[in-house]
């Protein structure tokens, strides 16, 4: 009904037909992206930049078309190492997070260690991983894992550590064991924290895998970009960056969707309508 009346009114009042019908909020991400590329193109033209310093978007897109086969192969390789590392991080992060959140002593003991470990730049670990596993896929997967599991651990542990004391009292007064409280309250409660952390973790995983590929691999976007850079093929470097950005956005969107699917009860404002 409303759709019919809407079209009827827009037909009756042709003064503002197009502008009113566009959902600006939905269109905004696309418009802003196009605007960024347009601005970039104009800047390159205005400053007369040589493509070896800052290639225009049109050069970058041309490079993507020209080198499509290697770009595609290396993009898949990077996506593969990243998701592998991320998957290990999810399993390990969930397990360690639950373990840490289980008891105050374990929390107190492991937390400083975790922080110290997280403070180490992961790029410094790549040479060690290479000594152990050689160059290629394995160090990239492991770097992605090492860099992305920390936020998962912290978030899961936080979810467990912030159970309301009243809820705990109600259950403990009924004779609940620690395990009961964990299963009935702790774990469901930490799920929104967990799924929220996945969005942070997946983008970090890309950082890890690309760093490792740049330093120690013959495959992947990291390796492709570093060899393109050594040949002064700057448009190809930017093409690699663009592919990384696209993969990152896609995976982030997947995680955000998953979060909404799995923990809809935590997003009550949108569910209530």
């Amino acid at each position: 009904m409303s759709a019919m009346t809407e079209t009827a009114t827009s037909a009756a009042a042709p003064a503002k037909p197009l502008m009113a019908r566009i959902n600006w909020v939905k269109a905004a991400p696309w418009l802003y992206t196009i605007a960024l590329f347009a601005l970039w193109e104009l800047l390159v033209i205005a400053l007369d930049m040589p493509p070896t310093i800052l290639p225009a978007p049109t050069d970058v897109f041309a490079a993507i078309a020209k080198y499509w086969s290697p770009i595609w192969k290396n993009s898949l390789q990077t996506l593969y190492t990243t998701t592998m590392g991320f998957a290990i991080a999810v399993v390990a992060g969930l397990a360690i997070g639950l373990f840490i959140g289980w008891s105050k002593t374990i929390y107190a003991g492991l937390y400083p260690l975790m922080i110290g470990f997280n403070a180490i730049p992961k790029v410094a670990l790549v040479p060690i991983l290479v000594i152990w596993f050689g160059i290629g896929t394995v160090p990239a997967v492991l770097t992605a894992f090492l860099i992305s599991f920390f936020p998962i651990v912290v978030n899961v542990a936080t979810g467990l550590a912030t159970i309301e004391p009243e809820t705990e009292d109600v259950l403990r007064a009924l004779g609940a064991k620690k395990m009961d409280i964990m299963l009935k309250v702790g774990i469901p409660r930490s799920m929104p924290y967990f799924f929220g952390s996945l969005k942070v973790a997946i983008t970090l995983a890309f950082v890890g895998s690309v760093v490792s590929e740049t330093v120690a691999s013959n495959y992947g976007l990291g390796n492709m970009m570093s060899s393109a850079q050594s040949q002064f093929n700057v448009p190809l470097v930017f093409a690699g960056l663009l592919m990384l950005a696209i993969e990152g956005i896609a995976m982030y969107a997947l995680m955000a969707w998953l979060e909404k699917r799995m923990t809809g009860w935590a997003h009550r404002s949108t569910m209530a309508q």
């Binding site: 009243e166 109600v170 799920m191 935590a266 009550r268």
Partner: peptide
């Protein structure tokens, strides 16, 4: 005082 219902 706090009903502490589990939201899920």
């Amino acid at each position: 005082q706090n009903p502490t219902m589990l939201p899920w």
